Structure formats: C-alpha cells, structure tokens
Amino acid sequence: MPTELEELVSFLHSPQPAVVSIALDNLVGYSQGPQSQVFAYDNYEAIKDLKKLSQEKGKTHVVQSVTILANLCDDLTMRNLIVEDEAYLKYLVSSIVNVNNSNADIMCILLTNLAKNDSINKVLDFTIDHNDEQKKIFKSNKAMDCLMDCFVKGFDRSLNKYADYDYLSYFFADISRFSQGRAYFITEQEYDAVVPLSKLLVFTEKYDSRIRREGVASTIKNSLFDTNAHFKLVTEEKINILPYILLPIAGPEEIDEDEMFDLPDELQLLPSDKKRDPLNTIICVHLESLLLLCTTRQLREYLREKSVYTLIRELHKAVEDENVADLCDRLVQMLQRDEAPVEAEDEEESDDDDDKIVEVL
C-alpha cells in the first residue's frame, strides 16, 4: 500500500487539473531534504510528470514543478533523469532564451543545478530556432551565445521584464569546470568576434548583486585552469582580464606614486571612496585567480611589472580574515621569490600549493 505522500505524488499525473494543483501545492515543501525520496515512488514516475507539467501554459503549475525539479537536483539519480533527457534540456534552454517567459529566472536556477553533471556539456552543441522577434535580439542561434546575451544584456530587466538572469552566472561557473566549457569562454566567437569571458568582466564590481559577482568570479577562476590561455587573456587589449580581477580587491588606501604608476591604468588614481568587494569569500576567489596566473614564470614577471604585490600588501593590511591572509601570503611568496636562471628552469612551473586551488560551483 502506498503511503499518503506517495499517493499524493501519484496524483501528479491525474487527468484532473484541480487534483494536480492540490498535489503540487502540497509537494513543494517535500522536495528538499530526506523527504524528497518520496519522488522516487513508482520508479521515479514523478520526474516525468514534473517535466511535463513544467511545459504547461499555466504559470503556477510551471513555477511549482520547476521549483520541485530544481530542489530534486540534490539527488544524483533524479538529477540524471532530468539532465540526460536531451529533449527536455533543449526545452529548458529555449524557454530561458524566450524573452517573454515570466518563469525564466526559476528555470535558470534549474539549469544551474543540472550543471553539476557532465551531460550538461550537450548545451554547448544546442542551437535554437529563433522566431522573428528573437532574430532581432540574438545574432547567433547557438544556445550558449544566446544565454550569454541574456545574461549580459538582460541584467537590468530591459530584455525580459520578468527576469534578470543573475543565476546564469552560476551556470557559467559550473560549465567552466569542464574543458569544453572553458574552451567556449576563452575562444573568440564567430557571431560577434568577442571572447565570451571578456563580456563577464564588468560584473566583478556589481556590488548590488552578490550572485552575479560570485558566479562571474568563479567563471574567471575556472577559465584560468587553461594555463595556455593566460598570456592572451592578460595581454590582449580586447580581453584585458587583470584589472577586473584586481579592482574588487583594491580599496581606498593611498599608494606611493612610484608604485601606483606601475599598476594597470584602470588601477591608477582610484577615488578615495573606492570600495573593495564586501564579501571576503569573493575576494578569495579573485586571489586564487591571481595564484593561477602565477603558474608560469612569464605571468609572474608580468604581475611583478604591474605592481600587483602592492595591492596584495594593502589588502593584507586592511582585511582581517584568515583565508584572505593565507592567500595573500601565498601570493607574496610567488611574487617576491627569486626566480631560477632561465637556462636551469626545467622546473615544475606549477607550485605544489596551487594544486589546492580547485574549480568551484
């Protein structure tokens, strides 16, 4: 005999909309924690029901079913049943890109939660059949390009009045953990001749949105695990990643002129009310990005030339946080150490400590 909750789950495929509504209303609260295992009843039939309900026209059913699916992603089996359904994944991405979709943000959360699985890399190959309205907005039919455009152009709800797409930053961070995802972010795209990562940089100082800053900082860091791209990302004017890593960790402290004018142009003559990122966890992600840039001698020397040590020194003095202090110490050791003669440098360019830096989100 099914339990009362299992019976409620079975009502999700009732032909009567009123019964389905009652089931959804009551089941949202059971979609997190140990109680979520009730959705495994009858060989996970509820996952099929919820995917179907999330494609309905009615807003309430869609919001509730997508919310439940997003919560159930904590369970590996249930997450696999969602993300490995390619047709549903395509539907989800296409719905997010639909600028008239009032449920785009909760769908972004579901997409982000699915990005823990390798199968999410299928999104990199998806294309979208745009209608006439979408063709005026999106110049590419590649799903990733469209998601990037939503995130960059839609941050102020000017693209979709119902959505700010903030949670796509976490999706970008997750997909950049995979080599295919990293390749996308650091490669110039045909449709606009721009490296996608460069579009995200401006959001490292968006202090009114923790989600955007956190996700973007993690995407930058994960992209830097491709050490072959470091020099291009740092030195090419169209990308110029370094100032956007440094600005969030720079504060209002006065710096001697001799040191200040060695800094990147964007870091010189900062106003006296300059604020560094208010969250130490995000500062730590940027410091780990700098540590990754220290992997090669070429970039260490470049960071020295740009007086990065000066900013690390001031940050160390200004912020009382054990994790920040530890990362500052590691950076100082990398930047202030004596380098081996070039001819003797058949060295392990990657410092042992750097192995502790892991991809995030």
Rank of each mutant, 00 (worst) to 15 (best):
L53M: 07
N141E: 03
D329Y: 12
K48G: 10
V319K: 07
D208K: 14
F203R: 01
N228W: 00
N100V: 00
F231Y: 10
L197V: 14
K356H: 12
F178V: 08
S272G: 07
L27D: 01
F203W: 12
K232H: 05
N222W: 10
K48D: 15
D129E: 15
I137M: 06
V99E: 04
K356I: 03
D74A: 15
S223P: 07
D321L: 06
L270V: 10
R157T: 12
E305Y: 11
D156I: 04
V234A: 07
A344C: 11
L327S: 00
Q55A: 09
N160M: 09
L200N: 01
D164S: 13
N98Y: 04
L124P: 00
F172D: 01
L50T: 03
F171Y: 13
I255R: 04
V285G: 01
E254P: 00
F225Q: 01
A344Q: 13
E322Q: 13
D355G: 09
E205W: 02
Y41G: 02
L291Q: 08
R210W: 14
N240G: 01
N117R: 13
D354H: 10
A250G: 03
C146T: 00
V216M: 04
L270H: 03
K57M: 08
E343Y: 13
N160I: 11
Q298W: 01
N160R: 06
I312K: 00
L168T: 06
T77E: 14
S218T: 12
S209A: 08
R300A: 04
E254I: 10
L269A: 09
R210Y: 15
L224M: 08
V63K: 11
E314Q: 12
P271A: 07
T204Q: 11
E254M: 10
E345N: 13
E84D: 11
T219P: 06
E320T: 12
G154I: 08
N121Y: 00
K59F: 11
G251V: 11
P34Y: 07
L72G: 02
K90T: 05
Q64F: 06
T112Q: 11
D226H: 07
G29A: 14
Q134S: 14
I109C: 07
E214P: 00
L50N: 04
E214S: 12
F11T: 05
D352M: 09
Y302F: 15
V97I: 15
Y162T: 04
Q32E: 13
K306A: 05
